[in-house]
Amino acid sequence: MTAEPTAATRPRNRRQLIVEAAGRAFSERGYHRASMEEIAAGVGITAAALYRHFPNKYALFAECADVMIDRLVTALDEVPAGAPLPEVLTAVARVTVAHRAAGGVYRWEARYLDREDRLRLGAKFGRLIRRVDEAVQGAYALPDNRLRAVAALGAIGSVTMHHTSLAQRRAEDLLTASALGVAATDPTTAVPGARSVALPARQAPRTRRAEILAAAIPLFARDGFAAVTNGQIAEAVGLTPSALYRHYPGKVDILAAACLQAAGLLSQAVEVGLDGVADPRQALVALAATYVAYSFEYTELTSVAEAELAGLPAELRRPLVLAQREHIAVWEQQLRLVRPELDPRQARVLVHAGFGVAVEAGRRVRWRDTHDHRAAVTALVVGALGL
């Protein structure tokens, strides 16, 4: 009598395969929308078999978060103490690019970790940042070492947030160069040609529908879309939950409206920022300053749009993805005029690196909206583009 084929062919690294499949699912679909059944199918096992390795989805999610940061820490531990900055950043880029499909867990989904797990993860990231900080400090005697280190990591980590295809080695080299550009940037020196950005004025909500949207955005930003209830949104505007349906068919439609509002405000800001700018280099500076100003001015709205876009149904997501592509295309065109050696994919990767710098540097200064903070982050974004 022969053994069952499944028992004979069961891979020894099944737990690792599960974690990798889960990381991809959580990054692509978000913690709440990814299911254990979907993850199990990605590994070619049943959900029952999956539960033999992990008691619940949260336990699997927490391990996914730990595995990626552990890989980064281990990679840097293998780099000799006092190694030059390019060697340190290359080690980070190599791991990040190799596991880019699972890396998106950190930027937004880590908020769903319990406090204890979040603190443990934060301690590991702190160790990573300190190592990069030391290398940055050793390479360039410039102000704000920690800000430049965090921003450089943001440039590299940006590859986990998009799908632009690039050969692994080319991606590693491009992201390392971008991060080096960030590290070499003095954030206290204004970018030549940068000018103040006049964003569209905030409009006070004048309809019940607008009031609902304005109340929902900070709730989504703080707790995540899936964790917010219709009751919480209704309470914030003094309505009953059933009354919300007179204005929005469902909660997901409120989210879609928030994402559309974000796209519209950014598009308006870009039009104003580029008005009268003909030189491609100055256009990129204007785009960077505009994006940074928008990120500081509409921090909650921006975080909701970026974190929750993947969770929208396809029919609601499609126009937002098109708007996002159009915005990136503006950057890409100007960047290739300034740096003609870049092909379209390379330019796109660098544009996303600039976005990653804006997010991580903005977080580092806790989104405290001052002229100096906007100017510093703008300079770092420009550095990420290799200008």
Rank of each mutant, 00 (worst) to 15 (best):
E4M: 07
P5H: 11
A8S: 13
T9N: 09
R12E: 04
V19T: 13
S27D: 14
R33P: 00
V43A: 10
V43F: 08
A48R: 15
R52T: 15
Y58M: 09
L60D: 08
R71D: 09
L72V: 11
L72N: 02
L72Y: 02
V79S: 09
P80L: 09
A81Y: 04
V88W: 00
L89C: 11
L89W: 00
A91P: 07
V92D: 01
T96V: 14
V97I: 04
A98E: 11
A101H: 11
Y106D: 10
W108I: 07
A110Y: 03
Y112K: 10
D114T: 11
R115F: 13
E116A: 15
F125L: 13
G126N: 05
I129L: 08
I129G: 00
D133Q: 03
A141C: 06
D144S: 09
A149H: 02
A152K: 00
H162Y: 14
S165C: 10
A167Q: 15
R170E: 15
A171M: 15
L174Q: 01
T176G: 05
S178W: 06
A179N: 12
L180Q: 14
L180H: 08
P187E: 13
P192I: 12
S196F: 04
Q203H: 02
A204T: 13
E211V: 00
E211C: 01
R222H: 09
F225R: 03
A234N: 07
L239K: 12
T240L: 14
Y248W: 06
G250S: 15
I254Y: 05
I254F: 01
A257N: 10
L265Y: 04
L274V: 07
A278N: 03
A278D: 11
Q282D: 14
V285E: 07
L287F: 03
Y291M: 07
A293N: 11
Y294Q: 10
Y298K: 05
T299S: 11
L301N: 05
P313S: 05
A314E: 14
P319E: 06
A329H: 03
R336K: 14
P340I: 12
E341S: 15
L342T: 10
P344A: 13
V349M: 09
A353P: 03
G354W: 06
V357M: 07
G362M: 10
A375D: 11
L380W: 07
